[in-house]
Amino acid sequence: MVNSSDMQLTELASGRMARVVSVSAEHGAAPPEIGRRLAELGFLPGETVRIVARGLMARDPIAVRIGTGTFALRLFEAACVRVRPEQPQPA
């Protein structure tokens, strides 16, 4: 499962497609119910994600497209999601 191109959702460039690799509250040091709720909202391995917009101050929160829905997440929430970009990201 481990892949060098895996990253936190927060690190994904805006507009770039990626797939969810794993979701866990531990990734983002968040309370466990956050990880569970993210899964219930559809943040599950294999689903497509894309960052639609970022906030002005500290780029927080972010708007994320997951499947056919869009959710606003604070950065600590988005940090619970690990993703793999669809194509290798240019350096």
Binding site: A30, P31, I34, R37, L38, L41, V52, P61, A63, G69, T70, F71, A72, L73, R74, F76, E77
Partner: peptide
């Protein structure tokens, strides 16, 4: 709270 507040707000 012990934890930060969650947002997780749907943008329909």
């Amino acid at each position: 709270h012990r934890h930060v507040q969650a947002l997780m707000l749907e943008l329909p």
